[in-house]
Write a protein that binds this DNA or RNA. Structure first.
Length: 260
DNA sequence: ATGGTTGAAACTCAA
């Protein structure tokens, strides 16, 4: 089965591109981030016509995540546990039922965290800690688990074309990277990293200052696999060409193929 | 150091 994640940066502005990419890539399950729409405003009908079930966790104006699936979904849950006062829509999980068994899939949109001298960085780090606690509970279940999304974290210098430009940015702060490492240490595999040693495999290019034309990108969209999921990993990749489409998102899709 | 761009929705914020 093919599972993908894509920060779409506004579903209303991106629906045509999304439909084209679904038609081309034929993923079974897609995690979308930054839909920037309430549930009622999400253009589900056009996506359902391609054979997908649509589950959204929307919010007005900002954030918002969604799951698209050709497989039946069970146990759909919205929101990251751990803080009842957190009203930002950044997390959705479900269990996809396939011929080869169940795969738990979480779509996450981590906080950006900038500016670093604001409460936004504290929120980012607290959110990462909540995600780690959630992941710790889930990985104990010893089932295939995929945590996919926009992590807003550059794991290593090799994940940026110009790492020096990101020193002091919330995406590359030692504390942010440590939070991701702590989560990885629970036993997750970074799917793209595990199949591809190539440098310059980025997932995000800023709209500004000709970042795309200069390939001034960063790798911040990740798919973390539990041991039971990584045992079934066949391939992984980044659909970089989508960044050159008309009216593109600043992120491109990342995908994996699992056996079965 | 600054400015560069985009989306959603409101005349600005978040990224």
């Amino acid at each position: 089965m093919k599972i993908a994640t894509w920060n779409i940066n506004g579903i209303k502005a991106r629906i045509d591109g999304l439909l084209s990419w679904l038609d081309e890539a034929e993923p079974d399950v897609v995690c979308l981030q930054e839909i920037k729409s309430v549930d009622e405003g999400f253009p589900a009908a056009a996506i359902e016509e391609l054979g997908y079930k649509v589950e959204t966790h929307g919010q007005k104006g900002f954030n918002g995540v969604a799951l698209l699936s050709k497989c039946p979904l069970e146990d759909v849950r919205r929101g990251l546990p751990g803080d009842d006062r957190d009203e930002q829509a950044r997390f959705i999980e479900a269990v996809a039922i396939t011929d080869n068994g169940a795969v738990r899939i979480a779509g996450a949109y981590m906080p950006n965290g900038n500016p670093v001298d604001s409460p936004k960085l504290d929120y980012k780090l607290a959110w990462m800690e909540r995600l780690q606690h959630w992941a710790q509970e889930r990985i104990r279940l010893e089932e295939p688990l995929v945590i996919a999304g926009d992590y807003n974290i550059i794991p290593e210098a090799v994940d940026a074309r110009n790492p020096q430009n990101w020193v002091g940015d919330a995406l590359f702060l030692p504390g942010s990277r440590q939070a991701l490492r702590k989560m990885m240490a629970l036993g997750f595999v970074d799917a793209v990293r595990s199949v591809c040693d190539d440098a310059e495999t980025y997932t995000f290019w800023d709209y500004q200052a000709g970042a795309w034309q200069k390939n001034n990108g960063i790798r911040i969209d990740h798919m973390l696999l539990s041991p039971e999921a990584s045992d079934r990993l066949i391939s992984a990749g980044i659909d970089k060409h989508v960044r050159a489409w008309e009216k593109p998102s600043d992120h491109v899709p990342v995908w994996i193929n699992l056996a079965g």
